[in-house]
Design a binder for these strands. Structure first.
Length: 270
DNA sequence: CGCACCCCCTGCCGGC
DNA sequence: TGCCGGCAGGGGGTGC
């Protein structure tokens, strides 16, 4: 589910309610996530105060008062919600972290593709493969060109490679390449400077616009207060197979690229 | 190196 | 109505 804009929205919506609060107790109900929840997670969180809530790539980062960082990945179906602690635990609520103000943070993940890890600040650089965050100023056309050069892989696979660029998933890769006018199957190594500029520019505008709409809610996604996003109304190709291209009216096609459903306009994306 | 392919897991939807 | 296959925003591992 959540890509960069959704994770950013979740972090922002949690921050006011979490910052300055202390975890008084943490209950783990299911340890079998993408990586098994470490036995020491509860002890690492309990008693700690939250100093800041942020994001990197697709991870929500919760900075603790001992300098360590709780990194939360929501996989495809994860939710992180701040609610009154009297809320009943629901099916697939795998962790509840109780705060010192009568509220609690609920981690909910039906498919269990997410992960929960407390790490030292030094380990942050390698998180999720260590790619440059897609909204980091360091993600420039020159950088994109440097990681593309000589590569035969498709440009879409490169955009979604978290070890190179972090935060872009399947929905936004489709939208970015549509706005940049580039065929998702084209080879990364063949990108011109002009195309690299178009991709970086489209990445920033699409991700920022999606954040402004508080993310894309297709099925599961909700922010830290349970609210849906609105960017699904602005999607130009994702999920629109057979519909007319908003730019040229040709029919949008669905193909498979990089193992994922890929939507594109065969006329305006070259 | 990069990819196709498989897996993990639950829920939902459409077709029959 | 029920069953079944396919698909879904994530990542990781393997073998070619």
């Amino acid at each position: 589910m959540p890509e960069l804009p959704e994770v950013e929205t979740i972090a922002r919506s949690l921050s006011p309610g979490l910052c300055g609060r202390r975890f008084v107790a943490v209950d783990v109900y299911e340890r079998r996530l993408r990586h098994p929840v470490a036995p020491g997670l509860t002890a690492a969180l309990a008693g700690r105060r939250v100093v800041a809530v942020g994001r990197r790539g697709k991870y929500v980062l919760c900075e603790l008062d001992d300098g360590r960082i709780w990194a939360i990945h929501l996989g495809m179906s994860g939710r992180l919600t701040l609610m009154a602690r009297s809320e009943p635990r629901r099916r697939h609520d795998h962790l509840i972290a109780y705060l010192d103000d009568g509220r609690a943070l609920y981690y909910h993940d039906p498919r269990r593709f997410g992960s929960l890890v407390v790490m030292a600040p030094g380990e942050l650089a390698s998180l999720g493969g260590g790619g440059v965050d897609a909204l980091d100023p360091a993600f420039t056309p020159g950088f994109l060109r440097s990681i593309s050069r000589g590569r035969r892989r498709t440009v879409k696979a490169l955009l979604m490679d978290q070890a190179k660029i972090s935060g872009i998933g399947n929905i936004y890769a489709n939208e970015i390449l549509f706005r940049a006018g580039i065929d998702p199957r084209s080879r990364a190594g063949g990108l011109t400077q002009r195309e690299c500029r178009a991709i970086v520019s489209a990445t920033r505008s699409v991700l920022r616009a999606a954040i402004a709409q508080r993310g894309t809610s297709i099925a599961d996604y909700r922010d830290g207060r349970g609210r849906a996003g609105r960017f699904q109304r602005r999607l130009r190709v994702y999920g629109r197979a057979g519909a007319p291209c908003p730019r040229c009216n040709a029919r949008i096609r669905k193909i498979i690229v990089a193992g994922r459903g890929t939507f594109h306009c065969p006329r305006c994306q070259r």
